[in-house]
Amino acid sequence: MALVFDNSPDSVVAIGICKLGGLKYEISSGSDLSLTLEAGDEIKGSAVINFLVKEVPSVLGSDEKEQEEAQAWMDKKTNIGELNKHLTLRVYIADGLEPTIADLRVFSQMRDQIIKQKAPQRNQFVNVTRWFNHLQSLFAPHLSAVAIKLAYTAPKKPEKKKQEKKPNSQNQRRAPAQKVTGFARLCLQVGKIVSIEVHPTVESLYVEKIDLGEDQPRTVVSKLAEKIPIGEMKDRLVVVASNLLPATLQGVESAGLVFCASIGDSVEVLSPPEGSKIGEQIQVQGLNIQPDKEPITRKVFSKALKGLKTNDDCVACYKDVPLSTSKGNVTVASLKGAEIK
């Protein structure tokens, strides 16, 4: 059994389906797309895709919702800007845990354009760049990899206008603005877990959809599946770090972190008080919290957590001052003097 591919978009899709489905075809390049079956029959052109989809039906989507979304993207003509916006909080086009035929088709259509891009364009459409780079390994070694390296380019600072001195001014010196550091750089928000499931391949991980009052729920991966029953996590309010740099964990991009307190093997999720508004920012009395607008790296984030722990009343505190919402203090169920992270 052999798959021969050419330079057509259909060939890219065919290779992707074979890899996703674990099909044992010998794959090689040639002048035309064709598939030779075990009985010796040969299939050519777009009929190859139709045959492979029947072999690997999961590539259409894992459920009805994914299938409808994948088909919609198969039917439409898209552009890189629209795709970049769509992938803002998604790993794949149909928002599942595995690529679908829509990812393969759009990948095949975008590949030449992305190959020709310079670094500024890849930075401009960073969600597409991340998605494209994530899918590239699926086609190795049959398609040459595109070297992807993102670099942050700081915006130019506007030129300062010289201010004319006002007559009769008292020349009073202004105190320098205080630099925001540490915990005050973090954005902690009230979120609600609207769906949750165990990671399909790593049983210790939960994959959660968390409503933060944004256009779409965020996908967050938490290593809590062996610590807290899934029934206790469903539909509960949580405290989420929402300006943490997204990270791919076991194939799923996590766009945040659920805060927990722990002592040894005992772990409890931080709970905002009942009635707290979804998306509300967590406050600490006396602390001028000004979250970074750019996502914070894991290294900076870890340092900023120093001083977070629960007190003897099971209230979450930063340097002994309670974390709170407009409805009261953030708490845990029973852990006292526990580290929070």
Score class of each variant (00 low, 15 high):
Asp292Arg: 08
Asp235Tyr: 07
Gly264Lys: 06
Glu26Pro: 01
Gln281Asn: 12
Asp95Ser: 05
Pro200His: 15
Pro155Thr: 13
Ala145Pro: 07
Leu308Gln: 03
Phe132Thr: 03
Ile340Tyr: 09
Ala119Asp: 13
Gly45Tyr: 11
Gly275Thr: 07
Asn127Gly: 07
Gly61Ala: 09
Ala175Pro: 01
Gln163Ile: 14
Gly275Ala: 06
Val128Gln: 06
Ala119Pro: 03
Pro217Ile: 00
Ser324Pro: 01
Pro217Trp: 00
Glu226Asp: 13
Gln281Trp: 04
Pro291Tyr: 10
Ser271Met: 12
Phe132Lys: 02
Lys149Met: 11
Ala154Cys: 02
Leu308Cys: 13
Ile340Trp: 09
Ile80Tyr: 05
Lys85Phe: 00
Leu212Met: 09
Gly337Leu: 12
Val239Glu: 00
Ser326Ile: 07
Val207Cys: 04
Asp211Asn: 04
Leu143Tyr: 14
Glu42Ile: 15
Arg130Cys: 01
Ala147Ile: 06
Asn7Glu: 10
Gly286Tyr: 06
Glu226Val: 06
Gly286Val: 10
Ser46Val: 15
Ile27Gln: 06
Ser137Asp: 12
Asp63His: 09
Asn123His: 10
Tyr92Thr: 08
Pro273Arg: 11
Ala39Asp: 15
Asn171Gly: 15
Lys179Ile: 15
Thr331His: 07
Ser204Glu: 13
Ala94Ser: 15
Glu38Ser: 14
Ser29Gly: 13
Leu89Asp: 06
Met233Thr: 09
Trp131Leu: 11
Ile230Leu: 07
Ile148Asn: 04
Val332Ser: 05
Arg174Glu: 07
Val330Asn: 02
Pro200Tyr: 15
Glu26Met: 09
Phe259Lys: 00
Gln283Cys: 06
Ser276Trp: 02
Ser242Cys: 02
Thr181Cys: 07
Glu208Ser: 13
Pro272Glu: 05
Leu138Pro: 03
Asp103Ala: 11
Gln216Ser: 04
Gly45Cys: 09
Asp292His: 08
Lys76Leu: 09
Val48His: 03
Thr88Pro: 00
Ile49Phe: 07
Glu274Asp: 12
Pro167Cys: 09
Ser271Thr: 14
Cys260Phe: 03
Lys192Pro: 00
Leu205Ser: 01
Pro272Leu: 07
Val269Ala: 03
Glu42Ala: 13
Lys85Leu: 01
Ala2Asn: 14
Asn311His: 08
Met1Ile: 10
Leu87Glu: 01
Leu245Phe: 06
Leu3Arg: 05
Lys306Glu: 10
Thr325Asp: 08
Ser31Gly: 08
Ser29Gln: 12
Lys77Pro: 01
Val284Leu: 09
Ile282Gly: 00
Leu188His: 01
Lys192Met: 06
Asn171Trp: 13
Gln170Leu: 15
Ser334Gln: 10
Leu224Trp: 07
Val269Thr: 12
Leu37Asp: 10
